[in-house]
Amino acid sequence: MLNGRKGMSDMRMKRFAAMIIIVLCCAGSFLLSSCSNERENIENLSEVQFTNNNIFAKSLFQDSGTVDNNLNNDNNFRTGMSYYNDCLYYVNDSESNEIKIIGDSDREPLSFSGGEFAIYNDKLYYVKNDKIIEKSLTNGQEREIASGDTFCFYKNYLLTRHDNSIINVDLKSLKPEKVFESDKKILWQSACSGKLYVIYSKAKLNLTVIDLNGNKASELELDCGFNNFLACIFDNNLIIGKGNAIYNFQAKRSIP
């Protein structure tokens, strides 16, 4: 009798445990699904974090997307700067293409023949005739590694903009992968935390967010005018400035 009751009790316990597991699985699945949806929503940017190392790359990529701003376009530091290993690399005069270095007095200036540049992983990268050139800082060897008129880095990847596409290039294999394509002009792009943010113009400004790991995309129409805007994305905020207004899309409020 006792054994019989114990057996029944064990069965009930097993059924109960099985039910608990099923309920937990369902809840987990629901939560995962919810999180996944949230990740694709630009209005929830809580995951967006930059590291110090990619802040300048972000800045480079953003600046090149700024349009119709005479002051920016005519700036003498137009080929950019790069902050790497506590040294600031900059070009004062785009005619000379000589990269000066602040922070290490022993280093000789670098020479290159191109436009926008960045220092990354002990290599110089620059744009020349819509190609991205990689130059070794140790032996000076150069090679063409991708197409594009502007670029930035994300981990071991190089993101370039070519025509109306964004191409993700593996820096080890140099294998290119097109991650975004539009029939409209790309006005701004920025990459961080495994996501690529692209603003292009349709009826209004459109923002696409692409998960670089899974290529999942989400779309948002930004309620602001065409062209002549500045955009920046940092911490939890996507901020767009245009004319006499600056709007924080995360906080859904204008800056007073």
Binding site: F50, I55, S59, Q62, T66, N69, L71, N72, L230, C232, I233, F234, D235, N236, N237, I239, G241, K242, G243, N244, A245, I246, I255, P256
Partner: peptide
């Protein structure tokens, strides 16, 4: 307040830095 001719901006550590020039 208006930001006539917003020239440049960037953000870090929850702070937005921007320059305006009428």
């Amino acid at each position: 307040m208006s930001y006539d001719n917003l020239v440049t901006m960037t953000g870090i550590n929850n702070n937005l830095y921007f320059s305006a020039q009428k």
